[in-house]
Design a protein around this nucleic acid. Structure first.
Length: 743
RNA sequence: GCGCGCAUAGCUCAGUGGCAGAGCGUCUGCUUGACGUGCAGAAGGUUGGAGGUCCGAUUCCUCCUGCGCGCACCA
């Protein structure tokens, strides 16, 4: 065995990856027990970051280990069209060229996104290869592939026929910049200092035992009249502009202060509309004044209140975030923020503004563009959750799906238990268009007839809905749509039978609700089985300052730069070495440096053993005698016992996704037990003619066994050494690895 | 507000109911049969604070503090 004095990752990695592909080792082989993972599809918005590198290394470790154990393994690659996120990055790109998507029109814009898709999918897949991921490229999936799209549309149709999908006018999260609805999960809440405005709403009716003078209607009709208010109820709000759409004031039924006012009417300043005071348990009597203005069209809670009390819903902010014609003319066309100032000024001048307090509040922001989310009444499509989530909850509770770390099980469960209907329609151009066709019954009749189907219905005048589906609607089908499920009865594929439920899902904790939970109920609904047996939640990769790695903040590190500098093995091992099961992983490059040194150590151990082997008379005999050698000395005995222990522990820890423990264990064993101790002892032993041959045999045995344990973590360098040991054979080739398992 | 995680060397973090560990950094020596990306060694710690269980706690329990994360209808 001739190993160069120095291992150069750059010279080996691409060559070795090509060898693997040529040997076709990434496709499922043999008749072993199936083991399957589907990759969490990276968004095609950009290139991969350290979180992806970590997650995909974890999966590759599992997949390679399973393959070496002789299991029939598939790891399915794919990418996600990532509707809103991708549309946004392409829009940003266009903006730099001075264009908007409206300049292009829908068809052209979508073409533009497809060009982006081609480019970034290529980049992402290239990165995965550089990292050494042993994905089955013959099974590559994209969420907008024809078959995948069929699966998505069938899923929609299925839910609709079952009565689980409905169209409804409800308050939803609206992003005026993205010009689309958002699900609750796409909204990020951020604390911000703001103001709490106290506004006086004058009482209209006489209350018998209130002495104060009530205001006449005539007076209030005169906008310019400055009058003194003797009798009013004060509400507190952070969003005064929405008062233009108020249709009630609510108080807690138990609040004695307002008990006598319940049922009374107030005059809504600036609009002079008459609105009632209602009693509702949702009102916290300890907050503000204990009286809440109710704006059903622009607040989730207020909407609920309005349903309970049968209140009108006046939408005064439109989809562009501007005041519409339901509000007094003066404010029409203003942005909500401008309207706030105008409203406050007018209220103050008219004497309705009682006071303004500083107030720390939680602002809802669009998770994609950070614009403040405007809740508004909108006609959207929803998926009923009540029935769907039940089997998912049961499956988790019954322990059919096991989370690691265990605590995330409860988190997922809690979300499922309290999740309510999912807004699945988005006003975007990039994504799966709803299979909803509409036609007006006749030219005069405004009634709309709806047809749900994959094909355009017969007859004149049918148009397809402009909306697309929430990107997570399609991701929810990922575990089985990647294995060939299209929703058609005949589409039960061999892959589906063999590899579903998948063995493990490895992902980050930020998408437990968005994705993991939804995959569970989707799989149970469509296949009647769980999507995966185990869920591994890896830590979030932070930079050394503890900040989230983010491209826009410039706090990220590009894995490709590290691979280029230290080699893929060092990056992989460094990540695994730091992956010790904690919530966050403060990424430190020094771990990669240490791993590079570790790889160097492995290389030199192999060189030392190789050099001795070359001078040995019994080289071939040793290499092909796949038996555990017998110890002759105390040192022999110790290292062999230690090896056996380590092998056992590695297997146990991998089963529990203890990647960090395994990396530490391997590091310590290889460096301290094997190199520092045994190799040094072997030098003396080999001077003894009686011990020489046996010691050589033990050295080879140790090397072979170490390479096998290390291979899932550092596949390139171990493969390089292996190929020198066993000429053209691959350690990663299951049959060969199988044959080489020494008893 | 509710829930969860973390706290160990200068930094990043392992680990353990019984003498406190690694990597990086610092210092001293060293071409030893592969490795200077190395070897031998050194300095560096009240294991966040208080209490409890125990013969013994850094480890288990309770509380506190600090940092981080998630959820929530604070208008």
């Amino acid at each position: 065995m001739n190993l160069s004095s120095k291992y150069e990752p750059k010279n080996s990695e691409a060559k070795i990856y090509a060898q693997w592909e040529k040997a076709d080792i990434f496709t499922p082989k043999g008749n072993g027990q199936p083991f399957s993972i589907v990759i969490p599809p990276p968004n095609i918005t950009g290139s991969l970051h350290m979180g992806h590198a970590l997650n995909n290394t974890c999966q590759d470790v599992l997949v390679r280990s399973a393959r070496m154990q002789g299991r029939k393994v598939v790891w399915i690659p794919g990418t996600d069209h990532a509707g809103i996120a991708t549309q946004n990055v392409v829009e940003k790109m266009l903006k730099k060229q001075g264009k908007s998507r409206h300049d292009l029109g829908r068809a052209e814009f979508v073409k533009e996104v497809w060009r982006w898709q081609k480019e970034y999918e290529g980049k992402i897949l290239g990165q995965l290869k550089k990292l050494g991921c042993s994905l089955d490229w013959s099974r590559l999936v994209f969420t907008l592939d024809e078959n995948y799209e069929r699966a998505v549309l069938h899923a929609f149709e299925h839910y609709y026929q079952k009565g689980l999908i409905y169209q409804g006018e409800r308050v939803i999260n609206w992003c005026a910049r993205c010009a689309s609805s958002l699900s609750d999960l796409e909204v990020e809440n951020k604390e911000q200092s703001g103001k709490l405005y106290f506004i006086k709403y004058p009482l209209q009716s006489q209350i018998s035992n209130l002495k104060s003078q009530s205001l006449s209607r005539a007076k209030l009709k005169d906008d310019n009249l400055k009058f003194k208010i003797y009798n009013f109820i004060t509400v507190a709000t952070t969003r005064p502009e929405t008062m233009l759409g108020d249709t009630a004031v609510a108080v807690n039924p138990k609040d004695k202060r307002y008990a006598k006012l319940i049922g009374a009417q107030v005059i809504l300043p600036l609009t002079n509309r008459k609105i009632p005071i209602v009693a509702d348990g949702a009102v916290d009597d300890k907050f503000g004044t204990g009286a809440v203005k109710v704006t059903p069209a622009h607040s989730f809670v207020d909407f609920e209140i309005s349903v309970r009390h049968n209140l009108a819903k006046i939408k005064i902010i439109d989809e562009r975030g501007r005041i519409n014609d339901r509000a007094p003319e003066k404010y029409q066309g203003m942005k909500a923020r401008e309207a706030r100032e105008a409203v406050i000024l007018d209220l103050e001048q008219a004497g309705f503004l009682e006071k303004v307090e500083d107030y720390d509040m939680v602002l809802p922001l669009c998770s994609r563009c950070e614009r403040v989310v405007e809740p508004l009444l909108s006609s959207q499509w929803f998926l009923k959750m009540a029935e769907l989530k039940k089997p998912a909850i049961e499956a988790i509770k019954a322990g059919k799906i096991k989370f690691t770390p265990k605590r995330y099980e409860k988190i997922c469960l809690n979300w499922l238990e309290k999740s309510y209907d999912w807004c699945i329609s988005r006003q975007l151009w990039w994504g799966h268009r709803l299979p909803v066709w509409q036609t007006k019954v006749n030219s005069k009749n405004e009634k709309v007839k709806i047809f749900i189907g994959l094909e355009k219905p017969q007859g004149e005048g049918w148009t397809q809905s402009e909306d697309v589906l929430d990107t997570w609607f399609s991701s929810a089908l990922w575990s089985f749509a990647t294995l060939g499920w299209t929703g058609e009865r005949t589409a039960e594929t061999a892959d589906l039978r063999e590899f579903h439920p998948t063995s493990v899902l490895s992902t980050g904790r930020d998408i437990i609700f968005l994705w993991v939970g939804r995959m569970i109920f989707s799989s149970l609904e469509f296949l009647g089985e769980i999507p995966f047996e185990k869920v591994y939640i890896h830590p979030t990769v932070l930079n050394e300052k503890g900040q989230r790695m983010s491209k826009s903040l410039g706090t990220g590190i590009d894995p490709l730069v590290l691979i280029d500098r230290y080699g893929a093995d060092a990056v992989r091992f460094g990540l695994m070495y730091q992956n010790t099961g904690v919530q966050d992983l403060k990424f430190s490059e020094s771990a990669i440096v240490a791993s590079q040194k570790f790889c160097n150590k492995v290389w030199n151990i192999a060189r030392f053993i190789g050099i001795n082997l070359e001078t040995s008379n019994s080289k071939n005999q040793i290499l092909n005698r796949f038996q555990k050698p017998n110890p002759r000395t105390q040192s022999d005995k110790e290292i062999l016992v230690k090896l056996a222990k380590v092998k056992l522990q590695v297997a146990k820890d991998l089963e529990k996704f203890e990647f960090g423990k395994v990396a530490h264990l391997l590091y310590d064993f290889i460096w301290h037990n094997l190199a520092d101790t045994y190799l040094e002892n072997s030098k003396k032993q080999m001077q003894d003619k009686k011990l020489k041959a046996n010691t050589e045999e033990i050295l080879i045995y140790l090397l072979v066994e170490s390479l096998k344990m290390l291979h899932p973590f550092i596949p390139f360098i171990t493969e390089e050494i292996w190929s020198k040991l066993y000429e053209e054979k691959l350690v990663s080739q299951p049959m060969i690895a199988d044959r080489l398992i020494m008893k």
